[in-house]
Amino acid sequence: MRVLLLALRRLGASIPTLLLILAGLFLLLQLAPGDTVDALMAQMGGGDAALAAELRRFYGLDLPVMARLGDYLWRLVRLDLGFSAIYGKPVATVILERLPATLLLMTASLSFAFAAGMALGVLAARRVNRWPDTLISTLGLVFYATPSFWFGLMAIVVFSVHLQWLPAGGFGDVAMGYTGWEAALDIAWHLVLPTLTLGLIFLAIYLRIMRASMLEVLSLDFVRTARAKGLTETRVVARHVLRNALLPMVTLIGLQAGTMLGGSVVVESVFALPGLGRLAYESVVQRDLNTLLGIVFVSALLVIAVNFVVDLLYARLDPRILSGR
């Protein structure tokens, strides 16, 4: 019950922000020169002015800006995301089609980054200033400093073109017509490289945070007490240090869930994955306002949801947070 109440409060607080973002974005896009009919003309390679005028009427672009904004917000209140100009389908359908790929990629790479970052961070902290620490920290720095598109392309060149171990792109092998478990395995197979590419950069951040946080907690009094009790070092780290050191990591997950959605434009393009990032990019280029606003709406909801889960995790990891209120 308490959780539900917290959830409702969170959602209530987010609604004004959400509205502001959507209205702001709508107006901002009006400043970009050209509309979706111009984009369509570019795709068609030409057409006459009468045709363009007719298309503008068709897409409702002949109405004043404020009327269109009001119309959009009113539809949003009724949970109608509108119709996509480029896809000719309801925006909700378009987004739902793309959501699985994005969520899969996001969860896979976040989990990978979190797990590996945690393990490497603990390892580095326990061997602080010795060679494993130096090696791990340097690797982390390299991963962090390398742009993801370069990583992606190099991974394709090495693992797909030369070694031919993994597919170079796509979300499953269309020519084979797999179903059931085979299809799931096929998709997983196609997601290995994108997950690693997207995960490595985040891994670097997690690793550094974990290391620093471990070092800090290791120097606290209760750790000394634990050691004085005669516990083994492994037990001290697993039972006492890790749990406390995890708090900043969990915070970071909440923050990065949003970044991951945006950051995947590059990875999705390089690996030809049908995700939300590419859809958003395409919508901007094509000036498909409804789709773009729909994506912002869904992404915002996702970020709110993830942050809510993070809040719950805090309470679980550190009971003082809830009792303190």
């Binding site: 598109f149 992606g152 392309l153 394709i156 060149v157 797909s160 073109v161 031919q164 597919p167 170079a168 792109g169 796509g170 269309v174 020519a175 393009s269 390089v270 690996f271 030809a272 049908p274 590419r278």
Partner: peptide, 22 residues
Amino acid sequence: DRVVWRVVTDRAAAAAQMEAGQ
């Protein structure tokens, strides 16, 4: 038997897919 068009927007990635035979 079939023609399959693969949507690849990134030019460098498309070249890599050609090399990989995709």
